[in-house]
Each structure stands twice: as C-alpha cells, then as structure tokens.
Design a protein around this nucleic acid. Structure first.
Length: 113
DNA sequence: AATTCGAAACGTCACAAATG
DNA sequence: CATTTGTGACGTTTCGAATT
C-alpha cells in the first residue's frame, strides 16, 4: 500500500524550454557527494549537515502540506455538500411559495362577468 | 479481457494571510 | 520582520463504468 510516485521534478538539465512555466524553485539537493571536510572551528555544522537539515525540513514541509491539502479538501467538500442541501431546501420552499401565491391570486382575482 | 473516458482523489508549488 | 498555515491551480494517479 505504498505507491512509488513519479512526479515531474525538474531536477535534471533537460532545459527544453517548454516547461510548464512552473518549478522556479528547485531545491536541488545535488551535492557533489564525497569529500568530508572538517567543520571550521566555531561552526556547529558541516555543509553536509546543513544540506541534510534542509532536506529534512523540506520533507517535513511537504508532509505537513500534504496533510493540510487533504484536510482542506475535506472541509471544502463538506462545505459544498452543505450548500447543496441548503439549495434543495430553498427550492422546495420557493416552490411552495409560488404555489401559495397562485392560489391567493385566484382567490383575489375579480370575477369576469 | 482490453481499451477508453470522465470524475474523484492526490501531491506539489506558489502565494496570501495569519501568527509569534 | 521570519515562519507557519490555508488554499487555488496544475499535473498526475486511481477507479469505475461504458464500449469494443
């Protein structure tokens, strides 16, 4: 129950020029991996650690946003359902009022002849 | 069956509004 | 101010029904 998603992540240098006018912000976790250099004295984080932290943050953000989107859709769906049932109620009410108006018209109309 | 199609659900991005 | 949260827009995936 876990599907491998293959979404378009523009992280390669294809550059065909017809991208969806989108994807401006490629985080690009492309680190020239290897070469571990000691962190400079005083600095608490090596560049790798910083990159890992950034990746971690991004994944957390994606996860949260995923859930937020689901919840947002759930709420919206409910809202629409609510509106629809209100429409149904109002339509019935409107129909009744129109009928009532017609009968009242009949009652009040002056007799011809 | 295999294929096609439309609708619903999804994940991600960009951006505005809310929050601390 | 910087960060976080909510949502519209877009492209993708999944699903069920109709058609071949």
């Amino acid at each position: 129950m876990q599907k491998p998603i293959m979404a378009v992540t523009g992280d390669d240098t294809a550059a065909t020029g017809d991208m969806p006018t989108y994807q401006i912000r490629a985080p690009t976790t492309a680190l020239p991996q290897g070469v571990v250099m000691a962190a400079s004295p005083g600095s608490l984080h090596s560049p790798q650690q910083l990159a890992e932290e950034a990746t971690r943050k991004r994944e957390l953000r994606l996860m949260k946003n995923r859930e937020a989107a689901k919840e947002c859709r759930r709420r919206k769906k409910e809202y629409v359902k609510c509106l629809e049932s209100r429409v149904a109620v109002l339509e019935v009410q409107n129909k009744k009022l129109i009928e009532e108006l017609e009968t009242l018209k009949d009652i009040c109309s002056p007799k011809t002849d």
